[in-house]
């Protein structure tokens, strides 16, 4: 069973808020899914090359040219909090 601490670690990494009253249910659900996928452990895959892309193709390369015009006005209109051209977030202390 996934521990409460484990669920907390995952939710922090993923930046999701898990309400305390949901913690147990979520842990059970995640545990069941992880238990299900764990059947892969027994699969006879050995050292076979992992398949990341279905197609064995190489990355295409683009010419180094400026082509995109930035439409600041439209982009700003869609942003939750913009001032003086900056996106704003609560103060970050480094």
């Amino acid at each position: 069973m996934l521990s409460a601490a484990e669920v907390k670690r995952l939710s922090m990494l993923a930046r999701l808020e898990v309400r305390p009253e949901d913690g147990d249910r979520l842990a059970r659900e995640l545990d069941r899914i992880l238990g299900f996928v764990r059947q892969l452990e027994a699969a006879p895959a050995g050292e076979i090359e992992p398949l990341v892309h279905p197609l064995d193709l190489a990355q295409p390369l683009r010419d180094d040219e400026v082509r995109e015009q930035v439409d600041c006005e439209t982009i700003e209109r869609g942003a939750p909090d913009v001032a003086e051209g900056y996106y704003r977030v609560p103060r970050v202390i480094e």
Partner: peptide
């Protein structure tokens, strides 16, 4: 739920057993 599962299978110590293994089995299936 899926974000949390995905975070788990990629996280340190689980990557090989879950993600990498799944990519290997994926090739078997193909």
């Amino acid at each position: 739920r899926r974000i949390l599962i995905g975070t788990y299978v990629l996280s340190h110590g689980y990557y090989d057993a879950y993600y990498l293994k799944a990519q290997r089995v994926r090739r078997l299936i193909r």
